[in-house]
């Protein structure tokens, strides 16, 4: 028996919006510690790793480990039926091939339940190595979204160059080129608006904007986003999910032919 109730159901709605355009389907792995998901997009260019800790749910019950294969577009459609104020409960039996979602209004007057078929998904689980990154940039999530959107007008790729002075995002294409430079500004009044850079070694990497724009669907989850980079390895784009977990997107770089 698996049962997990999140009082702030809107967080789960946002989580689904953050992954459903990148992943068609994925397996939620549930154990006593919480729910997690790891999946690559269909081109195997990016990887999503998502964790929701058991402590964030009330109640959380997982009698034995289970893997729930889910069509994320279907899950997202059903979650659109929940109001932002609703609590969301996810239930799955031990033998069943279905999952049930229960949406409950804050005063308990309205309770909706939706049942969905589970899928058998063959997953290619990757071992994510522990890495110390050369550059870790924290910036407002909305700013990162804006940068990715703006540079998509110019080209298909963005080159991110991080030095101790700041971080520069550059794109070029048929119409010309564009550069956006952000300086460190850790002294701003509001913590959420800060840009901070921790750098061991300068790095320059190029990434497909198409995927970064998919990652930016997680913007409503968190005021800040963290970019972790080292030369010649995948970029990590991390958004916190309230106090209960995180979604990390990994993106393989592009290299010159």
């Amino acid at each position: 028996m698996f049962e997990a109730r999140l009082a702030q159901g809107t967080l789960l709605k946002k989580v689904l919006e953050a992954i459903k355009d990148l992943l068609n389907e994925a397996t939620w792995d549930c154990n006593e510690n919480g729910m997690s998901l790891q999946a690559m997009d269909s081109s195997h260019v990016s990887l999503v790793s998502l964790t929701l800790n058991a402590e964030g749910f009330e109640p959380y019950r997982c009698d034995r480990n289970c893997s729930l294969g889910i069509n994320l577009a279907s899950m997202s459609k059903i979650f659109k039926c929940a109001s932002n104020e609703d609590s969301i409960t996810i239930k799955a039996g031990d033998e069943g091939d279905t999952i049930t979602y229960v949406f409950e209004s804050p005063n308990g007057d309205k309770v909706s339940d939706y049942e969905m078929k589970l899928m058998d998904i063959e997953t290619d689980h990757l071992g994510i190595p522990d890495t110390t990154y050369s550059c870790v940039v924290k910036l407002p999530a909305a700013e990162f979204q804006r940068i990715c959107r703006d540079l998509s007008q110019i080209g298909e790729s963005v080159t991110i160059c991080c030095t101790k002075d700041g971080v520069r995002f550059s794109a070029s294409g048929d119409l010309g080129s564009g550069n956006i430079k952000l300086a460190q500004n850790a002294n701003v009044d509001k913590e959420d608006e800060a840009v901070t850079i921790e750098m061991q070694e300068a790095c320059t990497l190029t990434f497909a904007l198409r995927y970064l724009n998919f990652f930016c669907k997680a913007t409503p989850l968190s005021p800040q986003v963290t970019l972790s980079m080292s030369n010649e390895v995948p970029l990590v784009v991390e958004y916190k999910i309230g106090e209960m977990g995180h979604v990390r997107y990994y993106l393989a770089p592009k290299i010159e032919d």
Partner: peptide, 14 residues
């Protein structure tokens, strides 16, 4: 033109 690398070139299958 840059070529796009894949995640499987970096992280091993488990």
């Amino acid at each position: 033109q840059d070529s796009q690398l894949r995640m499987t070139q970096f992280f091993p299958s488990e």
